[in-house]
Structures are given as structure tokens and as C-alpha cells.
Design a protein around this nucleic acid. Structure first.
Lengths: 326, 326
DNA sequence: CTGTTAGCGCATTCAT
DNA sequence: ATGAATGCGCTAACAG
């Protein structure tokens, strides 16, 4: 029972393997009679075609790769769920590749050259132009999710719009001194979000005090440290805007340690709308993560299986979810 | 540049493809001179072997499959992280298969027969004997994670011990009427945990009031509904033990709606120790999810690549994490 | 030590 | 409509 091949089926059905292959691939050129005969044998023998062999012959794997940073958090889980939901419409396998920042090149090469997938979804990977080019050279379809690049298919959220919504809201509430806990300034998100902050201030006729900018890395610990520093500033801000909910959570801890609370001591806004935010009653910028995953694979599938080659870009609008932290 | 094959390398290096294959597979039987020559060409041409072809020839894919329920929650994410961590030691790809309860058979067959993986990790899948047998018939190594079966490799947590710890703790605190919100009674966990509850009561010389048993499905909504029902019972319990943290969260909501709180209105204990539990200050039974994932792939790798065929079973002890919800 | 050849399982011409 | 032959890219056994 260990391995039924197309030859076994052909023999049992008393036809050639070509015919079996045809019914397998729904070719029209088979008489109903033989088709049924073959189908019956296939069922009896519980036969399924070997994926590797089919891949080799077809030059197609029927699988898509999803590259994610080694750091798996709520964000990716949501995106992954979206990917899976989208995957249901197609008959594709999902290969998960973890990409360490330290060994980015090695990991990318592996995905690229192993040729085990027909296309790749790169989630929040901050790929460089050079890295993206490798995909082009090898003609492997690529879609960036939560990342953006000039001439690459991208599904991304309008960072600047999201940030502006948050800052504007705080300003409306009367806040003028607002601290901003950003992610790494060399990351796309870090840059974009800082720019958004500046724009929002400018549009309100105010100026952002760079003293109140803290560079961090989206983690709880980072938010905690940033808040500690802000508490030491001579003229404290009245509001905190964190570039991730995790950072907001960290900030909250530091605020509590100081004997203060939210929103009385500080107004606080996060980013991402992770599940925890609801329980903490944290106002935050919501990113449609599930949707991004879904759109991502839909886009990729289109690229791969309908040979579309025009650039596909989808910008998604984030929403401000207002709760009681400011 | 689109496709460099072993033939291109052989030609450029002026050797036969056999030789190239040998250096690729670190065969000792190649002179240093030719080896270096080939290696140089490989680098120049940026050549990587085609995974499909290699898989076909070797009857080995260098990938492992992870089957997960369609319902992806915190629990699974932690396990997956463990899997990835463990995967790092080996050079394996990870193929993720979602298994719908409704189409279990179809999905399992696909994994089984597609033959795109060398072995499978089945996480929290409540596989039947029959399903497990399919793997045996096809000689595809299988490791159950968070699931148990007589003669299958399994990494599992001692459910009964975990439940006993929770119930005993409540009894110590003086509670006698304890409601239990279980998962589906036809699931392994559902059965085990209920049994644990009964044992714990028996050992304390008490009897479990079946009226206080609520069957649910591990979700927040389920916990909410169960709590609603319990609030209608004539003689209310003083404590609630939920079979998942999510259920505990749902119960908490219902308790709050009733104008009561925890631990004053009810003592509350959850199960899983998800991240949220910490923030809710919820006492809960901790399952080492990350560890389970790590152990799972370690076990699987051993089965596949060192041809061990003795049954491997690992029982992990859960811990009671005491916080302030009771 | 190295080149050549025969599969691995399937899709796809090319004949018929 | 169908069977036989060829190739997908690679490994391994076989000669030399």
C-alpha cells in the first residue's frame, strides 16, 4: 500500500498512463467510459499523484511561500489567518519560511532557489531593492505585505494617514505636547510614521518637539524604557502616542509605576489594535491584518496563475479605534 | 538567469553531472581540485539544486508538515513558535496544512498522498485510530502534539494532573460548589479534564455536582454562555473552573455584566496561561506550549532522519500559575 | 576519482 | 480517443 503510482492505476484500469494523466488533469479528450473506469480504479486504489513528480514535470509546485520575520507576534498571526482564508479558494499548499534578520540573505536564497513554491508573500520584511531584484531575476512572483516598494506588488497600509488620525485626535482633545514612541528609524514603518507625526503637527499649525521622540523597536520593553525616559523630561508631555500597542502596554506599566494612570496622568494611543488593546481599553490605530493576508494571497494567485504582469498595489486605510485611554 | 541546472554547472566546470552531484552532497570521493573547480562554478552561476527534482530522486523532501485545526488561536501560535525554534537545528522546510473538521478526511489524504513532506506533526487534532493508521500504511512518520494515542508517538500534557491542581487549590481555599466549563465532551481534552475534575473531588471526599458542568468549545463566547447559565442556577457555585483561558475571559464578561467581580463574586481559574491571562490577573493552569512544539519537531526529526522506530512518548507536567482571581 | 546511465512519477507531444 | 515515448533535474549504481 505504500506507494501507488500512475502505473499501478494504468495497469489496473487497463489503459496507458497517458490516459490516467488526462483524467487526472481533467483533459476533455477522454471518453466518458474510460474516464469513469479510471476514476473508479483511482478511488479503489486510493491513489493521489505524487506532488514532487508533478512539480518536476509541470515546473510548478502548487504551493506558495510565506516569508515572515523570525519574530512572530499577534500581527503575523492575524495576517496568516487571512492568508489561510484566502488560500481556501485555491488548491495550494502553504510553505512557511522564517527569515532571520541576521541571515536574511541565506534564507532568501534558500526560498528562491529551492524552487519549492510558485510565488512568495513577504510579510513585514523591509526587503531591500537588491533583495527584491533577486526575485525578478529568477522570475519568481513576489508580493509584499505590510511593506512597500516602488515597482513591486504591494499590499500596504497608509501609515501616514493612520498616524495623522491619531495625532489629530489628540490635538483636538487639546494636547499640544505629545511624545512619540517610534519603531526603528531605519525601518520603513519607523520613517513613515515619524513623517506622519510631523505632517499632522504641521497641519495643525504646531511644531513637533523632537525631544519627545523616542526611537524603539515595537516591543513592550521598548515602550517601557521610552516612557521611563519621558518621565525624566523637564517639561513632560500630556499625551503619548506609541507606534505599536505593545509599546503602549510597556508605557502603561511605567506610568503605573510612577503612580499615575491613564487617561488622567497621560493620554495614551497605541497602534495595531491587538486583542489586548480591547481589554486595556486602549485607543489605537487599527490595521486590517486579516484583510491584508487575504488580499496578499489573492494578489499572488492572480500573478501566478493568470500570468498577469501589471503591477498590483493596494493601499489600505487604517482606522482610529476610540476607547478610553485619552 | 532563470534556471541553472546541474548540466549547466557540469558543462561550465568541464566535468560530468555525477561529479557535480557528488560535491553537492559532500561525497568524499572527489578530488580537492575538481571539488574546488565545481564549487567555484556553482558560486559563479549562483546555482542551487532544484528541490522537486532532488525530492523525486531521493524520495525525500526535506520538509515536514504541520497539521493544525482551522481554528487558530493563542495556543497554536505558541506551539508553532516552538516548532520553528526547533526547526532551526535542522535544515527543513515547514509546510502548514490546515485541517478542517468538516473535511478532515480530504485534507488528511492530501497531506498523505501529496508526499510533499517527510513526516507530519499533528497539533491538537484529535485524530482517530483509523486516521492514524493511514499514516502507518503509507509509512509516513507522525507525531501527535497535544494529543495522545496508545501506539503513536505523542507529546502531550497530563490533563488530569493539571485539572487536579486547579480543583485542589480551589478546595483548599474553601470552595465546595465549583462549576466546570469543559470543552466538547467528545474531544480527548474534554473527556480527560472532566475525569480529572471528578478524581479531584473524589480525593477530597467531595462529590462533583453534575449540574455545575457546562459543555462548551473553548471559545470566549462559549465561556460567556456557560456563565450565563450558571447564573441562573438556584444554588450558585462559589467558584468557576474553565477548561480554557478564553472561556474564563467569557465568563468574566458575564460576571461583570451581572454586576459582580472576581474574586469577590466568584473565584475563577482558567487553563492555558495565554498572554492575556497575565493582564487579567487570572489564575490558570500553564501548558508549556512552546516546549511542546519544540519537542514535537525534535521527535519527528529523530524518527525521520535517524530511522528510529521505537515509540516515543513524552508527558509534560502542567503548572498552576497562581494570580489573584481566586 | 570520474563520466555515463537508469530510474524517481508524472505531463505531454507524437503517432495511431 | 488513446498508447508509447520523451523530458523535467537530480541521485545512485555501474563501469572504467
Amino acid at each position: 500500500m505504500s506507494k501507488t503510482t500512475i502505473y499501478d492505476v494504468a495497469e489496473a484500469a487497463e489503459v496507458g498512463i497517458g490516459t490516467v494523466s488526462r483524467v487526472l488533469n481533467n483533459s476533455e479528450k477522454v471518453s466518458d467510459e474510460t474516464r469513469n473506469k479510471v476514476l473508479k480504479v483511482i478511488k479503489e486504489l486510493n491513489y493521489y499523484p505524487n506532488g514532487m513528480a508533478r512539480g518536476l514535470a509541470l515546473q510548478r509546485t502548487n504551493a506558495i511561500g510565506v516569508m515572515v520575520p523570525s519574530f512572530i507576534d499577534h500581527f503575523f498571526v492575524e495576517v496568516l489567518r487571512g492568508v489561510q482564508a484566502g488560500l481556501n479558494q485555491f488548491d495550494l499548499d502553504l510553505v512557511l519560511f522564517k527569515v532571520d534578520k541576521e541571515e536574511k540573505d541565506k534564507h532568501i536564497n534558500r526560498v528562491l532557489q529551492g524552487r519549492k513554491v510558485d510565488g512568495v508573500l513577504a510579510i513585514t520584511l523591509d526587503l531591500t531593492k537588491e533583495e527584491v531584484n533577486k526575485f525578478k531575476e529568477l522570475d519568481l512572483p513576489l508580493v509584499l505585505v505590510d511593506d512597500y516598494q516602488q515597482d513591486v506588488n504591494s499590499i500596504f497600509v497608509d501609515d501616514i494617514a493612520g498616524v495623522k488620525k491619531a495625532i489629530s485626535y489628540l490635538i483636538e482633545l487639546g494636547h499640544q505636547r505629545i511624545a512619540f514612541f517610534d519603531g526603528p528609524l531605519e525601518s520603513n514603518h519607523g520613517k513613515q510614521r515619524l513623517e506622519g507625526v510631523k505632517i499632522a503637527f504641521a497641519e495643525a499649525g504646531l511644531e513637533f518637539d523632537e525631544q519627545l521622540l523616542q526611537e524603539g523597536d515595537f516591543t513592550v520593553e521598548s515602550g517601557y524604557q521610552s516612557m521611563k525616559k519621558i518621565l525624566d523630561v523637564e517639561e513632560r508631555p500630556t499625551a503619548i502616542f506609541a507606534a505599536s500597542d505593545d509599546q503602549a502596554v510597556g508605557a502603561l506599566e511605567a506610568i503605573k509605576e510612577e503612580g499615575l494612570s491613564v487617561p488622567d496622568g497621560f493620554a495614551l494611543i497605541g497602534y495595531d489594535n491587538i486583542e489586548l488593546a480591547r481589554y486595556l481599553d486602549l485607543t489605537t490605530v487599527s490595521q486590517p491584518m486579516f484583510k491584508m493576508g487575504e488580499l496578499g494571497i489573492e494578489t499572488l494567485a492572480k500573478l501566478i496563475y493568470s500570468k498577469q504582469d501589471d503591477l498590483i498595489k493596494k493601499k489600505i486605510e487604517p482606522k482610529l479605534v476610540i476607547r478610553n485611554s485619552c
